[in-house]
């Protein structure tokens, strides 16, 4: 892994206007000021509970929504305001793998049609070349070419997910956003798909943004991990640091929630940190630190001020007043 930055997000904000009861409108702060860098060839894990904005952040990086604020720099180019032709060119460089394999393929179309779609859209390759490239893609993802003439409903979840991966690879992207790519699959298939993703990464020097709520999977795959809470990154560190030396109280709670197999060894099981309450509504985030409503170490200051992401150790960033270093 080198240290060349592929994607850089600077204070990225993605707000939506939602309708509440009686026609009132509210702003939903799905992503609220995220700053991070993803290096070329790495797997960056993004974890957090449901509704914390991790999928939205992934889709924001793909420019699926008009950006509310901030800047996204991809491969040295500012993509945050791209439109038309420029956006279409960017589409070749960044792709996505979806969570639900049954909804990510159009049920009315054969696999061969689904896989030739990227080339049709971008007017690439002629008929015979397309056919060869599709076979090549099938080979890469371990899909037998007999499936090409089938419809999605005639395939299993794992096979459909392979088709989804093949489609994402079709245009030779540099980066792939994996939005919970294995959480809808059987455990045995999960391992296969993860191994496939790792092999492809080595072969094609891909960069992954791996979104998941399954911490064990993330631990296995990722080099660096960002922990999100209510639209913000609360902790960002190399994977082993997160698992061994989590600093933010929210990350500590997440880590302690990973089930531990009691193998009868004498190692003491650390007490589990149980958070009370639910994720506050992203339409009405708490003042001050977003986590203060559930934090076991809450201080008076947390209710008034919002902590910023600070480097507590090299490459280890935490957004919490507990580690605030006074100059």
């Amino acid at each position: 892994m080198n240290n060349e930055v592929l994607l850089q997000a600077q204070d990225v904000k993605q707000h939506f206007t939602v309708k509440k009861e009686r026609g009132q409108k509210a702003t939903l702060y799905a992503v609220d000021g995220v700053t991070l860098s993803i290096y070329k060839g790495e797997t960056f894990g993004l974890v957090g509970e449901s509704g914390c904005g991790k999928s939205t952040l992934g889709k924001t990086f793909l420019r699926l929504y008009p950006l509310t604020g901030g800047k996204i720099i991809f491969d040295g180019k500012d993509i945050s305001r791209l439109r038309g032709r420029g956006l279409k060119e960017f589409r070749c460089k960044s792709q996505m793998i979806f969570q639900d394999p049954s909804s990510c393929l159009n049920p009315r179309r054969k696999i061969s049609e689904i896989l030739s779609e990227p080339f049709v859209i971008h007017g690439m390759l002629t008929g015979e070349e397309r056919r060869r490239r599709i076979l090549e893609l099938c080979d890469m993802v371990g899909l037998s070419s007999q499936y090409l003439e089938r419809y999605p409903h005639e395939m299993s979840g794992g096979q459909k997910q392979r088709v989804g991966i093949a489609r994402a690879l079709a245009l030779n992207p540099q980066m792939i956003i994996c939005d919970e790519p294995v959480s809808a699959l059987d455990v045995s298939i999960q391992a296969q798909v993860i191994n496939l993703l790792e092999d492809l990464q080595k072969q094609l020097s891909l960069t992954y943004l791996f979104i998941s709520h399954n911490l064990s999977v993330v631990k296995h795959c990722c080099q660096r991990i960002g922990v999100m809470y209510l639209g913000k990154i609360v902790e960002l560190a190399p994977a082993d640091r997160i698992y061994q030396d989590a600093r933010h109280p929210y990350t500590q709670a997440l880590i302690s929630a990973i089930p531990i197999i009691d193998d009868g060894s004498s190692e003491p099981v650390p007490p589990q940190i149980v958070l009370s309450g639910d994720l506050p509504s992203p339409t009405d985030p708490p003042v001050g630190c977003a986590f203060h409503t559930r934090c076991p170490h809450v201080m008076e200051r947390c209710r008034r001020e919002r902590p910023s992401l600070q480097e507590v150790e090299p490459e280890h960033f935490v957004s919490c007043f507990l580690y605030e270093q006074h100059p």
Binding site: K59, R91, S103
Partner: peptide
């Protein structure tokens, strides 16, 4: 709302398509 529509957008398909 289906993912295949999102996938098509990410591939760069036009709205008409």
């Amino acid at each position: 709302e289906n993912d295949y529509v999102t996938a098509s957008r990410i591939l760069g398909a036009s709205h008409l398509r």
